[in-house]
Amino acid sequence: MKVSTMAEMMAAGTKPEVLFWVGCAGSFDQRAQKITKAFATILDKAGVVYAILGKEEACTGDPARRAGNEFMFQMMAYQNIQVMNAYEIKKIVTTCPHCFNTLKNEYPALGGNYDVIHHTQFLQELIESGKIKISDSNEWKGKTITYHDSCYLGRANDIYEAPRKVLESLDIELKEMRRCKSKGLCCGAGGAQMFKEEEKGTTRINMDRADEAIETKANFVASACPFCNTMMTDGIKNRDEEVKTEVLDIAEIIAKAIQ
């Protein structure tokens, strides 16, 4: 697909409405790349003029900072802010709640001030403004979907409604897990846990969460974070359910539902 970079736009003398911050998972992880492509497809269909940083994008530093490595975080932040400020970035949308949190809450103290929104909020805006239209005969209609709250959207930033509103626009049955919203159970990936073995315990966090998702008997688990997606997929796979519950990002669900 044709996706412009900021450098290309700059060379052409144009500016995007919004920068799509893809994030490391969205860029490199095979599963998360599908989410990235689904979201880019939606942006195209909605006629949003967007760009990516492409090769100029680098890790926000979130996992390093949460592991305790402030030096590495500051180095990455410095680099990213230099790049974005040079392009005079005003608005950013990202499909990763960790990138979202860092860009929105932590970069301002370092001189990076942008209007940052998560893709579920952006999707809500697109739906409400009519820029994308949900097909009346969309394939999710009548299905049961449970939404797994990402900690970095939910508790970290109090975003509970946008992802739910987007899902509800599909005419589906939204079934909540036992622990949801501000009580939602973590998938186990945050705080740089994604990049190490879990500590010794009686079970894995993602297995516990997968059990809660399976309990709802939903047809699909909707996620809004590439890391949650991986953890939930692994957890459910490990439970070897007869009925395979598929874990999909909200962007993937919407991409298949719009006219």
């Binding site: 697909m1 044709k2 996706v3 970079t5 893809v22 490391c24 969205g26 860029s27 490199f28 992880d29 790349q33 990235t36 492509k37 880019a40 990516i52 492409g54 090769k55 994008e57 680098a58 890790c59 530093g61 996992p63 390093a64 592991a67 490595n69 590495m72 180095m75 990455m76 740089a192 994604m194 990049f195 190490k196």
Partner: peptide
Amino acid sequence: GMFSNIENNFAPWKFAPDDRDAWT
């Protein structure tokens, strides 16, 4: 390992930075 990947490859995994936009 994650720290050195971020430092050298600008991502927590060991992927070539040039492939960051390979998905396009």
